[in-house]
Amino acid sequence: MNGNDTKRLSRLTAILTQLQTKRLLTASELANKFSVSIRTIYRDIRALEQAGVPILTEDGKGYKLMEGYKIPPVMFTESQANALILAEQLVLKNKDTSFIKDYIEAIDKIKAVLGHTIKDKANLLAERTRFSQNMNSERNSNNLSDLQFALTNFCLTRIEYTNEANSATDRLIEPFALISTQENWLLVAWCRLRNEFRFFRLDRIKKLEILEEKFNPHQMTLQEYFDRYH
């Protein structure tokens, strides 16, 4: 898909959203809004009709959706929602303010169709994820998605962890936050072996098992954690 295809797909989606939120729209209104010609809008409307969208044309007035037609809500799994939230945190590090604004508006629309439970978990994950400014280095981990799930569902987790001396220990941990540094992904978790909060490098977690047992949520924000423990 080239840049023009991407722009057109984005415009078609936006036109459909506009038709859902307004009772009647003229071709000239749509052309002005998206900075394209009226002929382009005609082609876009025809493409939507060919895709099965029931658009009605009122002569001399404009376009509207057939009464009662609704776009089916987009369904995301919990891990897909978590991936979107992680992407949102990355975008917030971008220096282009217009890009950030557009992406946040898009994410807000996505959040609007998430179920309440998944939305709450996604918001918790956003609050418990932090990135460094430098996002250029490569980080490898097979456990990020599983740890996101354990964090947002308060699942006790068993890991086999290898330290700098290559010595392995089994730990029971309560995942609290995920932090991206310039070198690695770090997990902040309450370690039941050491009876304190510890940092764990994700690339040193050799085995991971999410247990059915739940832990009591730690009632503090990530910033409060830093203020209290660092």
Rank of each mutant, 00 (worst) to 15 (best):
residue 111 K to Y: 05
residue 202 L to W: 13
residue 175 P to Q: 08
residue 33 K to V: 04
residue 74 V to G: 15
residue 103 Y to R: 07
residue 24 L to V: 12
residue 132 S to F: 02
residue 91 V to K: 12
residue 34 F to I: 01
residue 7 K to D: 07
residue 37 S to K: 00
residue 72 P to T: 05
residue 13 T to W: 14
residue 94 N to I: 04
residue 75 M to P: 04
residue 180 S to L: 02
residue 64 K to A: 12
residue 131 F to A: 04
residue 184 N to V: 12
residue 159 I to K: 01
residue 147 L to K: 05
residue 181 T to P: 09
residue 9 L to Q: 15
residue 147 L to A: 03
residue 79 S to D: 08
residue 77 T to D: 11
residue 209 E to M: 13
residue 2 N to Q: 01
residue 156 L to W: 05
residue 202 L to Q: 01
residue 229 Y to S: 10
residue 69 Y to N: 00
residue 229 Y to I: 11
residue 181 T to M: 00
residue 31 A to K: 00
residue 49 E to W: 07
residue 207 K to D: 06
residue 142 N to P: 08
residue 29 E to L: 11
residue 187 L to M: 06
residue 120 D to V: 00
residue 155 C to M: 12
residue 111 K to F: 01
residue 124 L to H: 04
residue 26 T to Y: 09
residue 172 L to W: 15
residue 7 K to V: 07
residue 217 P to N: 04
residue 82 N to P: 05
residue 132 S to V: 02
residue 208 L to F: 12
residue 2 N to R: 00
residue 55 I to P: 02
residue 159 I to E: 00
residue 45 I to S: 06
residue 54 P to M: 02
residue 147 L to N: 03
residue 138 E to V: 07
residue 22 K to E: 15
residue 212 E to I: 05
residue 178 L to P: 00
residue 41 I to M: 01
residue 75 M to D: 14
residue 215 F to T: 00
residue 7 K to R: 15
residue 163 N to G: 07
residue 122 A to T: 10
residue 151 L to N: 01
residue 78 E to S: 10
residue 203 D to Y: 08
residue 181 T to C: 05
residue 142 N to A: 12
residue 62 G to H: 15
residue 211 L to F: 08
residue 215 F to Q: 03
residue 51 A to W: 10
residue 105 E to A: 15
residue 206 K to H: 04
residue 183 E to A: 13
residue 58 E to D: 04
residue 165 A to V: 12
residue 34 F to V: 02
residue 194 R to W: 02
residue 29 E to Q: 09
residue 192 R to I: 08
residue 31 A to M: 01
residue 173 I to F: 09
residue 36 V to M: 00
residue 151 L to P: 06
residue 42 Y to E: 09
residue 29 E to D: 09
residue 68 G to N: 03
residue 18 Q to L: 14
residue 62 G to Y: 05
residue 113 V to I: 11
residue 140 N to P: 04
residue 66 M to K: 15
residue 142 N to S: 15
residue 227 D to E: 07
residue 145 S to T: 13
residue 141 S to A: 10
residue 37 S to W: 02
residue 211 L to K: 00
residue 187 L to F: 14
residue 203 D to G: 04
residue 208 L to N: 10
residue 209 E to R: 10
residue 229 Y to N: 10
residue 88 E to K: 08
residue 212 E to H: 12
residue 19 L to M: 03
residue 214 K to F: 09
residue 105 E to Y: 08
residue 166 N to A: 06
residue 198 R to Y: 13
residue 179 I to Q: 09
residue 103 Y to M: 14
residue 170 D to F: 10
residue 202 L to C: 11
residue 224 E to Q: 14
residue 171 R to Q: 07
residue 211 L to Y: 09
residue 6 T to C: 07
residue 175 P to T: 07
residue 72 P to L: 07
residue 105 E to D: 13
residue 151 L to C: 03
residue 190 W to N: 14
residue 226 F to R: 03
residue 56 L to W: 09
residue 211 L to E: 14
residue 99 F to M: 14
residue 101 K to C: 07
residue 181 T to S: 15
